[in-house]
Design a protein around this nucleic acid. Sequence first.
DNA 1: AACTAATTTTAGTCATACCAAACTGGATAT
DNA 2: ATATCCAGTTTGGTATGACTAAAATTAGTT
Lengths: 242, 242
Amino acid sequence: MSDILIKGDNSQSYRAADELFLEFERMIVSGELCDGEALPPEREIVETFGVSRTVVREAILALSNKGLVEAKPRFRPVVRKPNFDTAIDTVGNVVSRLLEEGDGVKNLFDTRIMVEVYLARQAAVDAKRDDMQSLKDALEENEAAINNMDLFFQTDVKFHRVLYAMSGNPLLPSIHRAYITWLKPNWVKMPTLPARNQLNFESHTAIYNAILMRDPDKAEAATRKHLADAWDQINNILSAAK
Amino acid sequence: MSDILIKGDNSQSYRAADELFLEFERMIVSGELCDGEALPPEREIVETFGVSRTVVREAILALSNKGLVEAKPRFRPVVRKPNFDTAIDTVGNVVSRLLEEGDGVKNLFDTRIMVEVYLARQAAVDAKRDDMQSLKDALEENEAAINNMDLFFQTDVKFHRVLYAMSGNPLLPSIHRAYITWLKPNWVKMPTLPARNQLNFESHTAIYNAILMRDPDKAEAATRKHLADAWDQINNILSAAK
DNA sequence: AACTAATTTTAGTCATACCAAACTGGATAT
DNA sequence: ATATCCAGTTTGGTATGACTAAAATTAGTT
């Protein structure tokens, strides 16, 4: 099952570039190389580690591909201490392509329903006062932006982001960001109408009210309806494209 | 927010290796290069594309880092058409290290609770007869393995896998695999006792029965209890290690 | 047909060289 | 003193050739 990982983990690296990569990875994760710091020049690394520039370049390239350094062409690679967002970005392109096949977008959207239904239920059970205030603020910003296309999208995203943040789990905001990143390409294709904004705002309100009333079932129902609407909108775009 | 992605997307690649990488990526995703097929020798690619071996090697390395080819040292890289499992493997090492920090494992485990609670509730609502049979089979295999440490772990994993598969969403099995991969290192450290296996089996039974009775709330409760137990076991290991 | 030895091919590595872009420090202008 | 500009230096991207050890292939043998 986990052949690939096992291989990657326990096999000694026979390539010098791999070992150098691991060394730098260790230094970055341990903080020996700080975030934002630039890597030494390639020729200096050559001297330090006694390997050829070929090896150094391949190691740096690997760091770049894994998102551990940010390497613009002709600039010194800058150390980026990895977090879950960068991890997601690392696979971003591949995932985007995978989503284009078959029901990829639909399947991803279904997992979003899964997450948000859970979050809504959970919020209805144990949302704190501060969180409810944040959610209310986001809701009001959303309402105020109904006639502003761009701003409405932003406040829409923010409302959901607050829901994710309310979980108190720092992984959830990263997951939310991933959903936005991967689903946005389908989203931006559709024309935004004030009428639709109004509908979405009302859906948000329904979710908020259900949570406020401490009614998990109602919160779930409101979330499902909202996301079902959203999917219809995306799906129209997708099927129109065919 | 999505600076990194935008940069990666719209900036023309000024590095020849990047362009070659994109060309191969396209060929792999489009199926022009089939899964399992070996890449041509480096020197042949040099001729075909009129670039130096340096560039070819860097492009291939990038493919390898992204999981689009499997490159054992000294062997020709083998094309691997990407799927969600390989995407997860690509970030596997980095994520593993991230999890080691702070409450990383706990946070990941909490998302697992989120997913499985949802799945259990959903199964209670709309599980099909075939799915229930699969779940029952897995449960019986699990019971039969109570006195066999390794086998119990396998059947334990399988029971949960059936739950993930019942969603009908092909992304969920990949997510399940990710959980196993990332949480297993903590799991294998603990001694397996028949008594604990018995407890876990009974938890599985409770989940199964709740789903069978079409009771989402009870299914959720049983799942939460089971995973809370599991977390206690993991947590004992984690805190003992400190 | 199966096994083994000799040969060829190839990935990994090193060294060197060149170019163009980025960087540096000092001179000049404001 | 600060900003601007220019020349020299450094550095990343690329190309080329060479060498080694391992893999793939072929030839030869049983």
